[in-house]
């Protein structure tokens, strides 16, 4: 097995008295990934194709190096994902030799489930949450890695690194196991499972800095480009096949990018000139709005993300 050797100039970095924050975050994430793989019978990694997933995937490569990633990746495909996401998913996972499982709630999709028909809450419930719970059960997975971060949303701030889910996959914020030091409790009864969040302590800025310093590939939609879009209800919706135009809407070319990747109809783009990682980071530190602002799912009602998490959403 060929092992990489350290270039000499890296030595001073290694001998630093204290790790910088990205190194400290990386070390913690590797520890969590290894702990879960050692203790759970059948883990799986939720792969959303977004930037956080890209970081988590690189961390998994690092944690088990020079071995392969010892668990499959699971993508919950709602059928409303951007085509760029699907092609990135297929190319990149193949390139790094990861096992990929794609799961869709075919019954709901055949039934015509859509945010227009069901509302975003119910649509997410059927195509994401239900589909996820079914996939976990079918695969017999007792642990699922997720890329959620505590800085994303208020109810996530109280999430554990090991998030306990009952037999129905649900989360009870009042009945979580205390988590001390880095001693994680992996004990489960039949049917119960744990969501493991190796990126718990990362912020959005940390993710971008790491993507940059590690040169990790991400979906091109994150980079600004002239794209066909319409302004709808205060947010910018990209026009792809399958997005219906409302009466009076006329698509035009705008220089936009996605800050967070979700489903086509429910994730808005932002106007931006940031077409490189440095420009994105620069934009991020001058741009004072939260990344999930353009995700309809979080804003249906106060405490909306908390409700979804209780039902089994990540």
């Amino acid at each position: 097995m060929p092992i990489k050797t350290a270039p000499e100039e890296n030595v001073s970095e290694v001998l630093r008295e204290r790790l910088n924050h990205l190194q400290a975050l990386e070390a913690e994430s590797l520890y969590i990934l290894r702990e879960a793989v050692a203790e759970f019978a059948k883990p799986v990694m939720l792969y959303s194709i977004g930037k956080d997933s890209s970081v988590m995937l690189r961390l998994a490569q690092k944690a088990f190096y020079p071995g392969k990633i010892p668990f499959p990746l699971l993508h919950i495909d709602t059928s409303y994902k951007f085509p760029e996401m699907i092609s990135f998913r297929d190319t990149y996972t193949k390139e790094i030799g990861a096992d990929l499982i794609v799961h869709r709630n075919e019954a709901a999709i055949a039934d015509g489930a859509s945010p227009w028909k069901l509302g975003t809450q119910n649509c997410c419930g059927a195509l994401k949450t239900r589909s996820l719970l079914d996939a976990l059960e079918e695969g017999g997975f007792d642990a699922a890695f997720g890329g959620a971060r505590r800085d994303e949303e208020k109810s996530r701030a109280k999430e554990r690194v090991y998030s306990f889910r009952d037999g129905a996959g649900q989360w009870d914020p009042k009945n979580q196991r205390p988590e001390l030091w880095s001693l994680y409790n992996s004990r489960l009864r039949k049917g119960e499972s744990i969501r493991v969040f190796p990126l718990s302590n990362w912020t959005e800025l940390d993710i971008w800095l790491y993507l940059y310093s590690e040169q990790i590939p991400i979906v091109p939609l994150y980079f600004a480009e002239e794209r066909l879009a319409v302004v709808r209800g205060g947010s910018i919706t990209l026009i792809h096949d399958g997005v219906r135009l409302l009466p009076g809407e006329k698509p035009e070319l705008m220089k936009v990018r996605m800050r967070s990747l979700g489903c086509l109809p429910c994730t808005g783009a932002i106007r931006s000139d940031a077409d490189t990682l440095p420009k994105i980071i620069e934009e991020l530190i001058t741009f004072r709005r939260s990344e999930r602002e353009n995700r309809a799912i979080d804003h249906d009602e106060e405490g909306s993300m908390e409700l979804k998490k209780r039902e089994g959403y990540f």
């Binding site: 990489k4 350290a6 790790l19």
Partner: peptide, 18 residues
């Protein structure tokens, strides 16, 4: 024999390195 990481071998490792 060696301290192996994805980013190359290390000359030394201490808390909290994985």
């Amino acid at each position: 024999k060696s301290i192996v990481t994805y980013d190359g071998e290390l000359k030394s490792a201490s808390f909290p390195q994985s």
